[in-house]
Simulated scan of single mutants.
Amino acid sequence: MTINTEDLLNSILESIGRIDYIRPANIPNIDLYMDQVTTFMEEQLKSTKRYKEDKILTKTMINNYAKNNLLPPPVKKKYTKEHVLVLIFVYYFKNLLSIKDIEILLKPLTDRYFASDAEFDMQQIYEEVCKMEKGRIEQMQESIRDMYASAQDAYEDAPEEEREYLQLFAFICNLSFDVYVKKQLIEKLIDQLPGGRIKK
């Protein structure tokens, strides 16, 4: 097995540096039919796909999200800019959280800020989160470099022909542990929200 993990790491770190978000200004200001929503999301998020044939969002997914209260129903079969913003949140959460957890997390947002005259609206909430996340990219890159360096120091006594795989395995375990711990924290925080498992 010959993987140039250093090159792979640098490529990943560069791609993290290019992470961007769908800017609200790029979301059409007119209400969209479902086909237009799926086409828009596919175009905007295609760089996040692992495999070419993967679908970002399908009609079935959108219908399920509405049925499971993740997304307010469309108005006369049309979806607003706010619907699209909620769908973007759902897209990022669905790889990490259960549908029920996403519903609990988003319900206070959609109840209070969706199509309302509140001081904050969905667009402001979305932009603030994106700004905060963009500000963390360098810190994340540094953390990933540290995990990689730690893995490269592992298995010094292993046979040379096995060391590369074992170090890659250690790096993946390091990254996975980070995700595992943060997922546990996220779930515990969601349990505290209205509708969560912890009853007030």
Rank of each mutant, 00 (worst) to 15 (best):
D54H: 06
K52A: 09
E43C: 04
N68L: 01
V129L: 15
T48Y: 15
F169I: 09
T48M: 14
E119T: 09
Q152F: 00
L97K: 06
N69K: 13
L96E: 05
D7Q: 09
I104L: 02
K67N: 13
K200V: 11
E160Y: 01
M34H: 06
V179M: 09
K76L: 05
K76M: 02
L85W: 04
R23N: 15
K200S: 14
I19P: 02
M61I: 04
A170R: 08
T60Q: 03
M132K: 12
I56S: 06
Q139V: 04
N26W: 03
Y165M: 13
N29S: 12
A118M: 11
R50K: 15
E162D: 15
R145K: 15
E6T: 13
L8I: 10
Y148S: 01
G17T: 06
V179H: 00
L109A: 10
F171A: 10
I186T: 12
L168D: 00
P194H: 05
S98C: 04
M1T: 13
Q184R: 13
K100A: 12
H83I: 10
E142K: 07
N29L: 08
I125P: 03
I62M: 14
T60C: 08
A149H: 12
Q44C: 06
R112K: 15
Y21P: 07
L96M: 11
S47T: 13
K182C: 02
L185D: 07
L71M: 15
I12F: 04
D121V: 09
N63V: 05
D20P: 04
Y148F: 15
S143V: 01
V129H: 05
I172M: 10
E161M: 08
L9P: 07
A115K: 12
K182G: 00
R112F: 00
I102V: 10
E161W: 00
K182P: 01
M132G: 02
N10R: 03
V181Q: 06
L185P: 00
I144T: 11
A151L: 06
L193Q: 11
V84E: 10
A115S: 07
D117Q: 12
P24Q: 11
E43H: 14
E6N: 09
P194M: 08
Y91S: 13
T110I: 14
I12A: 07
N63A: 02
A149C: 00
A115H: 12
I125E: 08
I144G: 08
L87G: 05
K199D: 11
E6H: 06
F114Y: 07
K59S: 13
A66I: 09
M41A: 11
I3W: 01
N69Y: 01
Q167T: 06
G17Y: 00
R163E: 08
T5N: 09
K52T: 09
L109T: 11
I12W: 03
E82M: 07
K49M: 12
L71N: 04
S150A: 10
E119V: 05
M147D: 08
G196A: 06
E119K: 12
S116L: 03
Y126N: 04
I186G: 05
E128G: 13
C173D: 10
T38R: 07
E162N: 07
L168V: 05
R23G: 12
T39G: 09
T48D: 12
